[in-house]
């Protein structure tokens, strides 16, 4: 039996706009985090796993099942979307119960499973209240309850930690671990790496619709470091700058521009590079402009070192 969630060269465009491009992934059970800034394609990937959105190209399989077969797929997956909206007029309990009924389960079974799920996210006290009156954190939790209520093997959770207070956040993370321990997939998204890197077995970094790094968190950090970053520096004395730069061991290449207006630098350690650049500036070399040339890697890099980039 197939136990992975796979993307095979998947692309999705929204008209002209790129959602994700050429994504090939194989996600094993355990906690997997999709990390990337706003608009990097996390939700698009998750929607494609759940069949809410179709790939423009390529193929998605969840435990071997195609998302074109919701009647089979939706038994396997539980998806808490990023949308903060609910059917009108329902209490938390009615909400879970009614949508469990759509699975074709009996009344008693739905009542029981709804109760269990609500208890698991610690919402029992508020279950009889209307969702319209819930706080953001409570809405997040009732969505989570719905996602786990039918006991799915693959949990897909879009920014599930958003809006949770520290205590509830820890409880929720504990729940993820428990689920993963039971052999399920727990796929979560976040735009803050340090929020999830401690708990994840695997991290997938996304940027502008591309997977820029994937693997265990150490690998990912390494991958970013190994990937040379290019910076274009404009200054009055490019040759002086180039010679100084060559002395640094993390600089792979420093090329003078043909018009003599600047230097193209490749570095393996952007963090140290920027620090030395500051030193140079302090020591009298006038810099007119610093432009990172590959934004993808750079923004991911920002994530890694900067934590929250907001």
């Amino acid at each position: 039996m197939n136990t992975t969630v796979t993307f095979d060269n998947v692309s999705r465009f929204y008209g002209e706009v790129l959602g994700v491009n050429r994504v090939t992934l194989s996600i094993p059970p355990g906690i997997t985090s999709l990390v990337g800034p706003n608009g990097s394609g996390k939700t698009t990937l998750m929607n494609m796993m759940a069949g809410l959105v179709r790939p423009t190209r390529g193929e998605v399989r969840v435990l071997g099942i195609s998302p074109n077969e919701p009647q089979r797929l939706c038994h396997m997956i539980g998806y808490a979307t990023q949308f903060d909206s609910f059917p009108r007029g329902l209490t938390g309990q009615e909400f879970i119960y009614s949508f469990l009924r759509l699975f074709g389960y009996s009344h008693d079974r739905c009542v029981k499973q709804a109760e269990t799920a609500i208890a698991r996210v610690r919402m029992t006290g508020a279950a009889a209240r209307k969702i319209a009156g819930y706080s953001k954190g409570m809405r997040q939790r009732i969505k989570l309850a719905l996602a786990i209520a039918h006991d799915p093997r693959v949990l897909i959770l879009d920014e599930p930690l958003n809006g949770l207070d520290p205590l509830v956040r820890n409880e929720t993370i504990a729940l993820f671990r428990e689920m993963a321990h039971e052999g399920r997939h727990v796929i979560v998204s976040s735009h803050v790496l340090h929020e999830v890197d401690q708990i994840s077995d695997q991290v997938i970094l996304l940027s502008n619709g591309y997977v820029v790094a994937e693997g265990q968190i150490h690998d990912v950090r390494g991958e970013i470091k190994d990937h040379p970053m290019q910076v274009w520096i404009r200054c009055a004395q490019p040759s002086v700058l180039a010679s100084k730069l060559f002395e640094m061991d993390h600089v792979v290449e420093a090329r003078l521009a043909q018009d003599g207006a600047g230097v193209l630098v490749k570095t393996r350690d952007a963090d140290r590079f920027y620090r030395t650049l500051n030193d140079l500036a302090v020591n009298g070399i006038e810099l007119e402009g610093v432009t990172p040339l590959d934004d993808n890697v750079n923004s991911v890099y920002e994530y890694l070192i900067g934590g929250e980039s907001r």
Binding site: R72, L73, F83, F99, L102
Partner: peptide, 15 residues
Amino acid sequence: LDKSLHFYLLAPMRR
């Protein structure tokens, strides 16, 4: 419009 259609689409039934 209400952004609640996905709840239906996530139920295991043919469209």
